[in-house]
Each structure stands twice: as C-alpha cells, then as structure tokens.
Design a protein around this nucleic acid. Structure first.
Lengths: 120, 120
DNA sequence: TCAGGTACTAACAAAAAAGTTAGAAATGCG
DNA sequence: CGCATTTCTAACTTTTTTGTTAGTACCTGA
C-alpha cells in the first residue's frame, strides 16, 4: 500500500531508525493507541467487543487497524480462542508494559501543561 | 482551513482535551518536531538557517510550519531581531525544557526496543 | 541600481491517516 | 433452513499531513 520510495517515506524512515525518541513516539501515535494502551493497562485482558464499547466513536476499521499496528510493534498480544462465535482477547505485552513509567509521566505532564496552551 | 465539525476533528479534540497523555504526544508528533526539540536542547539558541542546515531534507515550508506549531504550543520561543537581513532565533521555552526528563526516557526506551520490532 | 543574503509565504500536489458503509465466515440454535 | 453473534475485510471517501516549487520584502554594500 505504502510507496516506499516517496521522499515522505524516506524522511520518516530516517528519523525512526536514527532516533529512539522518534520510534517511541511513532508506536504511540495513532489516534486511538494511547486509549487502547490505557484500557489494557487498567483491565488486563479485553475482548475486541469490549474495547469497541469503551472506545466511544471509534469505527471497526480503526479499531482493527490500531490493534494490528500495536501488535506489529509488539506492544500488545492477541489471543484468539478457536470458538464460534469467535473470541479474541488483547492484552499488553511485556514490552507494552515497559512503557508505563514513561506514559504516566507524559500523562501528568500533559494535564499540567495543556491549559497553558495558546489558543488559536 | 480545518473543518471543525468532521468526526475526525471531533475525535481528535475529545482525546486531546480528555487525556494529558494524548496532548503530550500531540505536541511532539510532527515529523520534525523531535529533531528540532533535540537540536534546541543541545544548542540553546539557533537561527532559522542553522536549523535548516541541521535538519537535512526538510523543506522551508515544513520548517516554518513545525516551528510555528511548537511556538503555538508554547514549547519554543521565537526571538526576532529587527535587523536586515533578518535574524530570528529559536530556543526552548521553560515549558519546552520541562519535557527533557520524559524525552530522555523515551529516547532510551526507543533505542532499547526498536530492534525487537516485528518486521513486515 | 542592483545582486545578495535571510526568513519567510503562497499555491499547488502527493501521500498518509482517519472515517463510512457494506458485508463475510463460521457455527449453534430454534 | 435461516438467524444471531462476533471478529474482522474490503472498497471507497474525506481529512490531514507532508512535500514541491516559486516567489517576496527588506536593507546593504559593491
């Protein structure tokens, strides 16, 4: 899908491979990823449908999409039970859990600083 | 420019206003912002042209664009000297500097974890 | 007077991200 | 059989982000 030769993609890859900070931000940068991460931290395992109910406003496409990316980046585990109707659970992986310290800091930085924002 | 009623924008705003974590990530999420932040941390003040030379591959439009956003979010200060030819310096604001702890953590998390990435 | 350096701006185009809508597979149950 | 349940796909559109290219304004100094 993605054109690997566009200068857009080239620049992005350079930054991500050269800089751990950029990589860290990139794995958390989807519109819904932080929320998903937070719900999984609070709840342990959650089924697809439970996540959908918690993430108010998300579409099925975006939910799958964000879950797939988080899984690809190794932050979550997908546990599929071979049943019908299907039952799929998601949970933070060990790698995903190692973000906790950082994200707690970011969260408190954010709530402390968001109000200082200069309005447009 | 931006349509404030699209569900895209609504979702984005909801997440950013409800969650400090999302706000923190959003102010750092431009393609070049982390690099700009890093150079300003290392160098103190930098002129527009100096930044441009350091940010290899950036276009003038993107440089201005990212600087304007960082300024709007209060992370950097813009110091314009009334001279000809113009001289404009950028530096981290106090608010911008408060991100240092977090970004150092993120950076080391990133370099530690980027290799574990599951390739496509 | 006119090129040169500096920090931008504007108009447009391409690419990526997000959203919408419709539907598919698989099986148990009435 | 036909329907419900659950987790996803696929095709398509809209919105946002990023990139390209060509300028501009200003004074200085030759």
């Amino acid at each position: 899908m993605r054109k690997q030769t566009s200068s857009n993609t080239i620049n992005k890859n350079n930054l991500e491979t050269n800089c751990g900070m950029a990589y860290a931000i990139s794995v958390l940068s989807g519109r819904w990823k932080q929320s998903i991460w937070g719900f999984l931290l609070d709840n342990g395992k959650l089924r697809y449908g439970e996540l959908k109910r918690k993430l108010i406003g998300i579409s099925e496409k975006m939910l799958i999409n964000q879950l797939k990316e988080l899984e690809k980046d190794g932050l979550i585990n997908r546990i599929a039970h071979p049943e019908v109707p299907p039952r799929v659970e998601y949970e933070l992986s060990d790698k995903g859990k190692t973000l906790e310290n950082i994200l707690v800091l970011m969260s408190s930085w954010g709530t402390k600083n968001a109000d200082n924002r200069i309005k447009t």
